[in-house]
Amino acid sequence: MIKINKDTKPKILEDNAKQWTDEYLTALKQSTPVPPHIKYRYQHNDIKDALEKETHGKCAYCESKIKHVAFGDIEHILPKNKNACPELYVEWTNLTLACEVCNCTNKKDYYNPSDPLINPIADEPDKYLMAFGPFIYQVPGERKGELSIAILDLNRSELIERRKEKIENLLPLVDKWKKETNETYKKLLYSQIKKEAESDKEFSFIINSYLKQINFYN
C-alpha cells in the first residue's frame, strides 16, 4: 500500500456533490431501500476515470493492477451506509479504487472509529507497514498496520505469489547493476531498476522496500 495523492475533483462532483448527498441522506431515512439511481451515482464514468488515473489503475490497498483481471470497484474508504459515514457518500477524498477482493470480500463495511484501517489518502502507509521480500508486516507497535493486514488479508497467497514473481523478475537486472563497472551502463541499469519502483507500477511498496534493503538508493 502506498499513499495516494488526490487529483482534481471531477466537474460532475463539483456541480452535483451537495445535491446528491442531500438526496442520498434523505433516501436513507425512508423505510424503503435507496433507489438505484440515487444509491449508485458515485459510479459515474467521469468519477471512475479520475480514480483510475490517480491510482494508476491499481487497488488502493493491495496495489494489484485491477484491469489485468477485473473492472475494479469504486471504494468508499469510510463506508457510506447509515451506520457509518453516509455524509461522505460522494466526498472526493473518501473515494478511491479497489479490487473486488479487498473491497467486497475482505473490507466489506468495516467501520470502527476506535480501530480504523490505514487510509491510503489521509495516512502515510509506510508509517504502519513494512515489507520483507513478498510479505507485508506491521511496523512494531502500530496496531493500525496489524489490523489493516488482517482485515484486508494483504498476505493472501495469490498476492505473495505475484509479489515474489515481481521481485524475481527484477533480480537479474539488479545483479547486473551490482556487478557493472562501466559507469555509463551502470547509470542506465539504475534508471531501469528505479522505474520498476515508481508509483504507477504494480506492488511498488514491495519493490521499494526490497531496493532499500539492498542499499540501492545509497
Rank of each mutant, 00 (worst) to 15 (best):
N112A: 10
I74L: 12
L129F: 06
G72D: 03
S64T: 14
E87Q: 14
F203T: 02
W20T: 02
P140C: 01
W92S: 00
I206L: 06
K39A: 15
E75V: 12
C104W: 05
L28K: 06
Y210H: 13
P172R: 11
E23T: 13
E75L: 14
Q213E: 12
Y185T: 08
D15R: 11
A197L: 07
P79Q: 10
D73E: 15
T21N: 09
I74A: 03
L154T: 04
T181N: 14
I118R: 00
P172M: 09
K178L: 11
L173T: 14
T105P: 01
K108S: 10
C59Y: 00
Y42S: 04
G72T: 06
E142C: 06
Y111A: 09
E196C: 13
L147E: 01
F205K: 04
K201V: 05
I207W: 04
K107T: 08
S209R: 09
P120M: 05
K58E: 04
D49I: 14
L13R: 01
L51G: 03
S64W: 08
T181H: 11
P134R: 06
V69I: 13
E168C: 12
P134I: 04
Y217G: 10
E52Y: 12
D22A: 15
F205N: 00
K65T: 13
Y24L: 06
P120H: 01
M1W: 08
N215T: 11
I121P: 02
K53A: 14
N119I: 07
E142P: 03
F135H: 12
N106G: 08
L188H: 15
I4F: 01
T181A: 09
P172N: 10
A70I: 11
Q138Y: 02
K3W: 08
C85W: 04
E202F: 06
D15L: 14
Q30S: 15
Q30P: 09
Q19L: 12
M130T: 07
I136V: 14
V34E: 00
N103T: 10
L117Y: 03
P35I: 12
I151S: 04
N218Q: 13
V69H: 10
T21G: 09
D109W: 12
I167P: 00
E146G: 02
H56C: 10
L25F: 07
V139Q: 13
D46G: 10
Y128H: 10
K29W: 04
I167V: 09
D49F: 08
N45R: 12
V90M: 06
L188N: 13
N81G: 10
S209W: 03
P36V: 05
Y61R: 00
K178G: 04
Q192V: 11
K178M: 12
N94C: 03
A150S: 13
K195G: 14
Q192E: 15
N112P: 03
V174Q: 04
S157V: 14
K178E: 14
S148P: 01
K6W: 01
I151Y: 07
A60H: 00
V174G: 01
Y185S: 05
F135G: 01
K67A: 06
D115N: 12
L78G: 03
A197C: 10
A84W: 07
K195R: 13
K58P: 08
S199L: 15
E168R: 08
C59M: 05
V90N: 02
F216C: 09
F216Q: 07
G141M: 05
I149M: 05
I193Y: 04
G57S: 08
P113R: 08
E54M: 14
W20I: 01
D109V: 15
L147G: 03
I193A: 03
D22T: 15
